[in-house]
């Protein structure tokens, strides 16, 4: 398979997942404040920016930290390359580049999504009642996942798409946990019920969590659930396992012999066999930082291994002595 096609699919997956996560985080943050909960409103909007890794870009732009400004910044502001709108546009552009390799249904689904989003007055949505917009984005992203799963053969295309999709998901859940947890630590509290509920909701996990743990809202359970639940599709571990499966298909062997496979395998095992209580007795955020760093390393090694093969990099490094000879 052409490296460029693989790269497009990988990024299409990442952008779709990113759009969905952004919409869900916005929705949860918005509704948390409708319910007039305790806690500072500005703090939670700042958390949101931090989870999405755009807190610096936002503060540098000298915008005011309040609901509608942050929402605009994350939904359609052209100065932010990571808005919902631009993620959907880029997912579509990436899939357009592999139009011949994906199913017609998949193309039509992403195209229709893009057109629906373009047809809306997003500024109106954000200032009015944004829930409908966020729900639409979430449903459409989930529809894309369904269409992909029901129409694409489990070939290299599928595996690169799902690799990007799943890695992005792990990062998003991880950052959610990281930011939410650090905030508690800095506030010197273990966090109230509502804090953890909204964290779970941000990962679509409150119902699944409740079924498993009933009345408990022990932070250790929440961390264990979001980090390493084997069967919850938005846990960090679930994403890592799915990505690992895709990678091993791509390499056509179960023995981990490429750098991405080795890095990912080690990381997955580490997360899989964690002792959460032990972890919580130390500094969880240090650990979470490390996991995030490792996931990014996996992504970089995927880039160099599959998208820019190393012999080609060597090709473009000119021997300076050659020039003078």
């Amino acid at each position: 398979m052409l490296a460029r096609h693989a790269e497009s699919l990988f990024w299409a997956g990442r952008h779709i997942e990113r759009a969905e996560s952004t919409a869900r985080l916005l929705d949860v943050t918005y509704h948390t404040h409708l319910e007039a909960m305790a806690g500072s409103e500005t703090a939670s909007w700042h958390d949101l920016l931090k989870i999405l890794h755009v807190d610096l870009a936002f503060s540098e732009s000298e915008r005011i930290l309040k609901a509608d400004v942050v929402s605009e910044f994350l939904v359609f502001d052209p100065s932010n390359p990571g808005t919902i709108r631009s993620n959907v546009t880029q997912a579509r552009e990436n899939l357009r580049a592999v139009r011949e390799l994906i199913s017609t249904e998949m193309w039509e689904a992403v195209n229709a999504f893009h057109l629906r989003l373009s047809a809306r007055d997003l500024s109106d949505d954000v200032r009015g009642e944004p829930h409908e917009l966020y729900a639409m984005v979430r449903t459409q992203c989930q529809a894309l996942a369904g269409v992909a799963s029901e129409t694409m053969p489990r070939d290299e295309c599928w595996n690169f798409l799902s690799l990007g999709w799943m890695l992005e998901r792990s990062v998003m859940t991880l950052r959610l946990l990281l930011v939410r947890y650090s905030q508690l630590v800095s506030a010197g509290a273990t966090g109230g019920f509502h804090h953890w509920v909204s964290t779970l909701k941000s990962a679509s996990g409150s119902e699944a969590f409740r079924r498993r743990y009933r009345a408990s809202m022990d932070p250790a359970d929440v961390v264990a659930f979001l980090l390493m639940a084997r069967d919850f599709p938005r846990s960090v571990l679930f994403g890592l396992q799915a990505a690992e499966k895709a990678l091993s298909w791509i390499d056509g062997t179960s023995s981990p012999n490429t750098r991405p496979q080795r890095l990912l395998g080690r990381l997955r095992a580490d997360v899989e066999f964690l002792d959460v209580r032990e972890l919580l007795s130390g500094d969880l955020s240090v650990y979470l930082d490390m996991v995030e760093h490792d996931i990014r390393q996996v992504a970089e090694s995927i880039e160099t291994t599959y998208f820019r093969s190393t012999d080609e990099t060597a090709l473009h490094v000119l021997d300076p002595t050659m020039v003078w000879r």
């Binding site: 052409l2 693989a6 093969s309 090709l315």
Partner: peptide, 15 residues
């Protein structure tokens, strides 16, 4: 990519 006067395409499995 042309290298040493041969043409190769970049694939996920190398050139």
């Amino acid at each position: 990519v042309v290298d040493d006067h041969t043409v190769a395409m970049r694939t996920t499995q190398g050139m």
